[in-house]
C-alpha cells in the first residue's frame, strides 16, 4: 500500500514538474503522442538519440541530430550542406523554440527522414521534446 502511494506521489510530482516547464505547444503534442499510445517519455532517451549515428549512402555518411545542431542545445548549429547558421534549440536561450506545434511537426518530419531515413515514432518525438525543453 505504502509503495503504491509513494509511486503515485512520485508520478504526480514528475507530471507536475514536467508540465511546469512545458510550453503549451509541447504539452499539446505530448498529449497527441500519449493518445497515440506512446509514453511515458524520457528526456534521457531523447538525449541518447540526439547523438546516435546513422549510416547513409550519401554524404554526410554518418548523420545524427548533432551533425547540424551540435551536442549542446544551447549552442548555435550549422546546416550540414549550406553552412547556414541554425539558432540554438534550447528554449532557455532561444525563446522561439517549441512554441508552434506545426513548426515542430514540420521539422520532425524533415529531420527524422534526413537523419534516421524514416519518420520518428510518437515515442521518439515525445522523448526529443522532453530533452530539448530541459
Amino acid at each position: 500500500m505504502m509503495k503504491i502511494l509513494t509511486t503515485l506521489i512520485v508520478t504526480g510530482f514528475l507530471l507536475t514538474a514536467q508540465s511546469a516547464s512545458a510550453s503549451p505547444a509541447v504539452e499539446a503534442l505530448l498529449k497527441v503522442y500519449s493518445d497515440a499510445g506512446a509514453g511515458p517519455f524520457s528526456a534521457e532517451a531523447g538525449q541518447r538519440m540526439w547523438t546516435e549515428k546513422h549510416n547513409h549512402a550519401e554524404a554526410p555518411l554518418e548523420r545524427s541530430c548533432s551533425t547540424c545542431h551540435t551536442s549542446n542545445l544551447a549552442d548555435s548549429g550549422k546546416h550540414a550542406k549550406t553552412q547556414k547558421v541554425i539558432k540554438p534549440m534550447a528554449p532557455v536561450v532561444n525563446a522561439k523554440r517549441l512554441t508552434d506545434t506545426k513548426e515542430i511537426e514540420k521539422w520532425f518530419m524533415r529531420n527524422c527522414k534526413w537523419t534516421f531515413g524514416r519518420e520518428c515514432s510518437a515515442q521518439e518525438k515525445g522523448d526529443f521534446l522532453l530533452y530539448i525543453q530541459k
Binding site: 550542406k81 506545426k102 514540420k106 524533415r110 529531420n111 534526413w114
Partner: peptide
C-alpha cells in the same frame, strides 16, 4: 521537396 538536393524539405 522530399529530395531537395539531398535534403528533406517537405512542406504542407
Amino acid at each position: 521537396l522530399e529530395d531537395h538536393f539531398g535534403d528533406n524539405a517537405e512542406l504542407s
